[in-house]
Write a protein that binds this DNA or RNA. Structure first.
Lengths: 145, 145
DNA sequence: AGGATATATAACTATATGCCGATGGAGGGC
DNA sequence: GCCCTCCATCGGCATATAGTTATATATCCT
């Protein structure tokens, strides 16, 4: 937390909630801009269909770049850049073996996030469908009068 | 390490498998591009510091636009546009009361996602610190010989 | 109706991002 | 050394996005 000139070191906090969740200071307005940016960066790294595809490919285990670009069906340069983004965000890591570079998931939590998103999409669709069906029923009743 | 095919099975997969988890078809390559795009859109809606700030403000309860722009300290037009993005993504909803429009969280799961991101950041920082400390210790030993 | 307030939208600029083609650099086999 | 494979990076182009200013819309009040 870096508000008001005083800086609280993570090590001096008992738990994450004390540091990261010092998100909220004395009042609602003192939110750490830094933290918001870092969360945003992390989400931004995931918020791309191609990168999600790559992550999904790596879910089954590590792969080298050549394998990945075959799996996702894109150019080498493009995949390489996306991998660089994922790596910079700490979502994947890599190791060298000969001329190949093998990438693997560094943070399994990304799949939890994906699942939460899928659940949300599902709920949203269910709600939309219910709304439409209800509306349709009302229209039917209206035309019946 | 993570390689070796571990797969995260969603607990509620039974209900989702038909549509959402058509993600994985017979083989790994048949991933629904549509689903990846929709997940990406949802994450993209969250992946912005200003929008995260707004969401955080709404965590305590509904607020009208004027309150929100005071809380986050931005212009009316900008906040309004961000709210439109969040609404389109289904993350917030709103209701009208007089001339005011009150926005509120439509999907509490976003906070779970934030929480996961914070956990990840924390782990990452801890790992970085450990690496640096270990490296420093090795350097110390090296100079001592 | 007309004015006041609250919110949404349009037009525009600056910046960021995704993609491609071409080039550079690292490791392995000859 | 030379070449080959694999990967990373650069320059360029097209699009997308955050931000601002100005304008439009909606509701309430008199």
């Amino acid at each position: 937390m870096i508000r008001g000139g005083r800086r609280v070191e993570p090590s001096s906090c008992a738990s994450m909630s004390e540091w990261l969740y010092s998100l909220v200071g004395e009042n609602m307005k003192t939110v750490s801009t830094q933290l918001l940016e870092r969360i945003a960066d992390r989400l931004k790294a995931m918020a791309d269909p191609m990168r999600l595809h790559i992550l999904h490919c790596l879910q089954s285990g590590e792969h080298n770049v050549n394998d990945i670009l075959q799996l996702v069906g894109s150019s080498q340069a493009n995949v390489s850049k996306h991998l660089a983004v994922l790596k910079k965000a700490g979502l994947v890591s890599c190791r060298r073996s000969g001329t190949s570079v093998y990438y693997f998931i560094a943070d399994e939590d990304i799949f939890s996030i994906c699942r939460i998103c899928c659940d949300g999409l599902q709920r949203q669709l269910d709600a939309d469908r219910a709304t439409i069906e209800q509306g349709r029923a009302e229209m039917m009743r209206g035309s019946g009068e």
